[in-house]
Design a binder for these strands. Structure first.
Lengths: 223, 223
DNA sequence: TGGGATTGGATTGTATACAATCATACAATT
DNA sequence: AATTGTATGATTGTATACAATCCAATCCCA
């Protein structure tokens, strides 16, 4: 919580770093649901002024992780497992579109990049490196969004990704999900490269459905 | 552009009002795509300090209407008609889910509220009041999102709504869209109240598809 | 003439000071 | 005793001052 200087987010601004710290701490449960985040406390804990803290809180509100009410401040809005279930269902609908559009609109360079990511992904999955597998899973999906050529779709799905980040972490190590996931990615990419939008969409829906079931299984294992 | 004091957004904070002014001006084309929004100019134009302007710009970035790069500032990212087309397609996918979930999870109070909104909507549509019809169209959809009981879904669809706001305005007056739209709403709500998720979803997809075609027709009429 | 440093103005990033608002406790009144 | 009013401390909202950065024009020197 106090390793503020280790976090070097995106553009290097204090706002981004404060944002990254708060996002991580909220998703990690350091600040449970309902916790009120007072600006002065955070700013003194992180040794920055209130200004970047305020701006970070604004971004967190847009992300949906806190809710801010005028003259009252920010309170944490935890990520419920119902939310996560809903997001997986939403992703089933629109991530299929991403694959379809990638098949229809993706440039050769974009598809090539996905192929390279996928090769790395398989390498780490077979090596059993869960951490790297999970990272590359995210990278692959991000590349897919990019290849869809639709900024509204990219924005929506990217927002979901960070929102359900911790849930993905927990469920990704469950069973042999990394290897299965890579295989599914390969079939999706093959369909995309063959410009078969229907197949790509169907495979992707199946992929997300499997990820959801993996998540539910991981939840089950905890309780 | 200078009627700042007339705009009274949500919570009455300066940040909200600046946000509302800038959003309106961007969507109205006062600031075309690529315009760089300098904080000091806006703050002096609106007679506020840079602080609320900065915060408003942050919100606009999350909304997707501007993009901010570190140490360089904010530039307008216009809403292309490709973006709008994509959003309608996305809505076809997930707004159907909203109806399905409303049918499955909606409380009697929520459905009752939708019914009341719809009666008003029909009243104004038959009266030929396009302005009010369009407002109530928004209100109806917002009530639908609420009844879905899913905050991720509500957040996503609400964001789309403001993003394509101007496009909806332009296309809503096209032909007899208000009356047709009310009829479609009525059939959707009937299905929701009958807890027929499948039908509600199908009707909603059709409804969005028709709205998209109305938009495309309106675009055609302009060019 | 061309290319690379430099310097000045403009703009953003951060800190801090001040004003407005809210929440709590306590006192006064009925 | 309940309620209303009021004072006080804490917290947020806004303004402003200062630091860091960027950009473009200029200058210098080969």
């Amino acid at each position: 919580m106090l390793d503020f200087n280790e976090i070097k987010a995106g553009d290097g601004s204090l706002t981004s770093r404060v944002y990254a710290v708060l996002e991580r701490d909220i998703l990690d449960g350091v600040y449970p649901d309902g916790t009120s985040l007072t600006e002065s406390r955070i700013s003194s804990e992180l040794n920055v002024s209130r200004t970047p803290v305020r701006e970070a809180l604004f971004r967190l509100e847009q992300e949906g992780l806190v809710s801010i009410v005028h003259n009252k401040g920010a309170v944490v809005r935890g990520v419920s497992s119902d939310d996560i279930r809903d997001i997986y269902t939403l992703r089933m609908q629109i991530e299929g579109l991403a694959s379809r559009w990638a098949a229809e609109r993706g440039t050769p360079e974009q598809l090539q990049k996905m192929r390279e990511i996928l090769e790395l992904e398989r390498f780490y999955a077979q090596k059993g490196d869960v951490q790297q597998s999970r990272n590359l899973d995210s990278v692959f999906h991000a590349a897919l969004y990019e290849a869809s050529g639709s900024s509204p779709l990219r924005r929506t799905l990217s927002a979901y990704h960070s929102y359900i980040g911790r849930a993905r972490e927990r469920s990704f190590g469950h069973g042999d999900r990394p290897l299965v996931s890579v295989s599914e990615h390969e079939r999706i990419l093959d369909a995309v490269c063959a410009h078969d939008g229907d197949l790509a969409e169907a495979l992707t829906r199946e992929h997300i459905k499997n990820a959801l079931e993996s998540f539910l299984a991981a939840m089950e294992a905890i309780s």
